[in-house]
Design a protein around this nucleic acid. Structure first.
Lengths: 348, 348
DNA sequence: CTGAAAGCGCTTACAG
DNA sequence: CTGAAAGCGCTTACAG
């Protein structure tokens, strides 16, 4: 078998044409549309290819066909955080399922290369899915200039920006309502850190929308939250535990912790247990996302169920619609959420 | 701003050359090596580019430079399973961190397009990382023919195949030793389903190596496991719960369940709790991997700690070494594991 | 500093 | 059924 002889260079279509005695056109047809040539030609060409170890160069092929057969997912934060965030992973899972269905690969694009903008300029993909994007961001104009189809998940809906969302503000309002109804007045909120590509004008970002929901409900109950009652955490278990310990050190320990993500809420629960506290008897905790872990942890977490995989799936389907140059049903998809009342919130 | 005027076609380097009055060479230099042209030329070219909305085509650029600036990760199973497997996700995280460091993207390649072989033939990447690969598999010869650098994680070491492993057999032997020492004799093992690209001759696959370790330890204790005591599960929480319920229905309920992955072990624990059993008092469970969740679940899981991120990191670093045509320190990297004895295994 | 031209490895309209 | 040739949009050795 010649395959085992390491060759300095890969043979090209030209080599196969020469060796087989046919033209480059015929070689191309042998691989892409055998019906266009005689069976004899096809066999000779393929066996020559086999003998010389020829596999058509995907890059040249894609370049010629002006396509990548891959869509990109712009990681919202550095790899370490993004791929440790169960919610983001579920979104990726939903996107990946759709890629698989269409025979595309999924290119994960780390944000920090040099700059995010640079990453988007260079992305070798047929379309991009981003998280938390707003239309005034620099990368949006890059995608537009490149005529690259894009969809954002958890971004700010806009005519120029197809997006998939839940009603974050209302979801948080509802959840806070539950917390207040249970009698809690001494709270700590744990917000999300902004995405790596957040712009200065981020008033419509998901963390801000959620915050508005919490504060509106609090306000209606006559409660004013001070800035010292709002902490920020990375969306990882480790950082959730860190912030849980911080909360235990507060002079005025809250009766309930309201976290913007389940993984952070779970981190807090673990930190509280570690310190010998009982959740929810000593302190209540609510989260957001309803990741799988939230129904595993004891006590099970009261949270907002948002269908992350579904978001990824819908976003990817919309993107493929655009890639195929078909019209979108609607530029803005909003899907329902559900408040899940479980054990981690106690009436006091 | 012209950006808002949707153009039918993207301008090319030729358009910028014509409009700016310089050559294509000069335009290329303006973007890639400004020192090669005068400042005036550079400014005029860049402003023309800005005006016409020109961003160099990454595909054409990469094609010309014969590179992709991306490495591929061949998903070992369909997306739904691979991206739900916390162990695989940790491996991906390790790989992703290295990609980020080198300014590469990470292309996730679903296995099922039409065939895995087809996916590998078409992969637009500079190198590939696979899991559980053995040298006789068809995809290996495809990668060799393509002269594509590759590394396998949890595959079978071979001179032709750089790999990253732990000593799976010994790890399982050690773990089983612990189980037997605790007095358990009535066991059920839960094996892993083979990867999507497993070959018929898979005797050196990780599931088989592990099985050998378990059986050797059992054998030395005079214990023979029957095939009815070996079940198979997908590596997901949901399938772990399913198999947990199956175990509860067995006529002869085991005193200890030995799962080849933590996520399956956790699924079993949840199923057992759901049925009102107490772990480990009514039934013990041990796992493999030491994922984050294993120290969160009650009771904390006795398991084998294997550094999944580190595997990904080392595999990716080895791959980049090959991509840069530097010699590998060694084709086979073996890293240490640790038996973690926690609460889910009870002495009986 | 500047530009004409060859080259990267394919695909495909077109003519025979 | 078959093949010569143009084209995809860049980079870069080379000559001026």
């Amino acid at each position: 078998m010649e395959e085992n002889v390491p060759m300095a260079k890969r043979p090209t279509i030209k080599d196969i044409a020469r060796e087989s005695g046919y033209s480059k056109t015929a070689v191309s047809f042998a691989f892409n549309d055998p019906s266009r040539i005689s069976e004899k030609a096809c066999q000779q060409i393929l066996s020559t290819a086999q003998r010389l170890g020829y596999i058509p160069d995907p890059m040249a092929r894609n370049f010629s066909l002006r396509r990548h057969v891959s869509i990109g997912f712009l990681l919202p934060q550095i790899v370490q955080y993004s791929l440790q965030n169960p919610y983001t992973l579920q979104v990726i899972q939903g996107i990946g399922t759709v890629c698989e269905k269409y025979g595309y690969t999924l290119t994960l694009i780390p944000p920090l290369h040099k700059s995010i903008t640079e990453a988007v300029r260079n992305a070798a993909v047929d379309g991009l899915i981003t998280m938390g994007m707003q239309v005034e961001m620099e990368i949006v104009s890059v995608m537009q200039t490149r005529l690259l189809p894009y969809v954002t998940i958890d971004g700010t809906p806009d005519a120029q920006m197809p997006s998939v969302n839940i009603d974050d503000e209302k979801a948080c309002y509802d959840l806070m309502h539950l917390v207040l109804e249970a009698g809690h007045r001494n709270l700590v909120l744990i917000s999300l850190s902004e995405d790596a590509f957040a712009s200065p004008t981020k008033s419509e970002s998901v963390p801000n929308k959620r915050m508005r929901g919490y504060l509106r409900a609090a306000g209606e109950a006559g409660l004013v939250l001070e800035s010292s009652q709002v902490l920020v955490s990375e969306c990882t278990l480790v950082d959730g535990m860190r912030i849980g310990r911080t909360i235990l050190d507060l002079e005025n320990r809250p009766t309930c912790v309201v976290a913007m993500s389940d993984i952070v809420a779970i981190g807090c629960i673990l930190a509280f247990k570690e310190a010998g506290l009982c959740v929810p008897d000593d302190i209540s905790v609510v989260g957001f996302d309803n990741i799988d872990e939230s129904s595993c942890i004891m006590p099970q977490l009261t949270t907002v169920d948002q269908p992350a995989k579904e978001k990824g799936r819908l976003g990817a389907e919309a993107l493929f619609t655009m890639i195929n140059k078909e019209p979108l049903q609607s530029a803005h998809i909003q899907i329902p959420y559900r408040i899940i009342s479980r054990e981690s919130l106690k009436r006091i």
